[in-house]
Computed example of a mutant assay.
Amino acid sequence: MNIACWSGPRNLSTAMMYSFGARADCAVWDEPFYAAYLAQTGLNHPMREDILDAGETDPTVVAKHCTLPPSGSEPYFYQKHMTHHMLDHYDQTWFDEVVHVFLIRHPARVLASYSQKRENPTLEDIGFAQQSQVYDAVLSRGLKAVIIDSHDIRQQPETMLSKLCDAIGMPFDPAMLAWSQGGHPDDGVWAAHWYNAVHSSTGFAGPEKDLPVLSDDLQTVCEAALPHYDRMKSLAISCPSENSRVIPTTSL
Rank of each mutant, 00 (worst) to 15 (best):
E49G: 02
M170S: 05
V134M: 13
A54K: 10
M86L: 14
P227H: 02
A63Y: 03
M232S: 05
Y229T: 03
I126W: 11
N196F: 05
H100I: 05
G169V: 01
G188V: 02
A27S: 13
F33C: 04
N196P: 06
H65R: 15
A137R: 12
L226Q: 11
L68D: 09
R109E: 09
E97Q: 15
T249Q: 14
A224R: 05
L226I: 02
Y114N: 06
F102N: 03
V110L: 05
L111F: 00
C26F: 07
G203E: 10
D50F: 05
M17G: 09
G188C: 06
W179Y: 00
L214S: 00
Q116D: 13
L52V: 03
V221E: 03
M1Y: 12
Q40N: 15
P227F: 02
C5H: 00
V62D: 04
D136K: 07
N196L: 11
K163N: 08
F95S: 06
E124H: 12
D230C: 07
G183Q: 02
A15Q: 03
A178I: 07
E49C: 04
S132A: 07
V98D: 09
T57E: 12
L235C: 07
R23D: 00
F33N: 08
P46W: 02
Q131N: 14
A192K: 11
M47K: 06
M17W: 02
I104F: 04
A39V: 04
R109Q: 12
E31K: 01
D152A: 09
N120K: 12
S162P: 00
P248R: 06
G8Y: 02
G206M: 04
F95M: 08
G8K: 02
D88P: 08
Y135R: 04
A197L: 12
C222G: 04
I237L: 15
R154Q: 15
V110M: 01
D216S: 15
G183E: 11
R48A: 07
V213Q: 15
L38V: 10
G72L: 07
Q130S: 13
Y78M: 05
G42M: 01
M86N: 06
L235D: 12
K233Y: 13
C239A: 15
V61S: 15
F77Y: 10
R245N: 15
A129H: 03
S132L: 12
I153C: 14
I126G: 08
R154G: 11
G21E: 03
D58A: 13
I104V: 10
D125E: 06
W29F: 10
P75S: 07
F204K: 06
H65I: 10
S132W: 11
M47Y: 06
A192M: 08
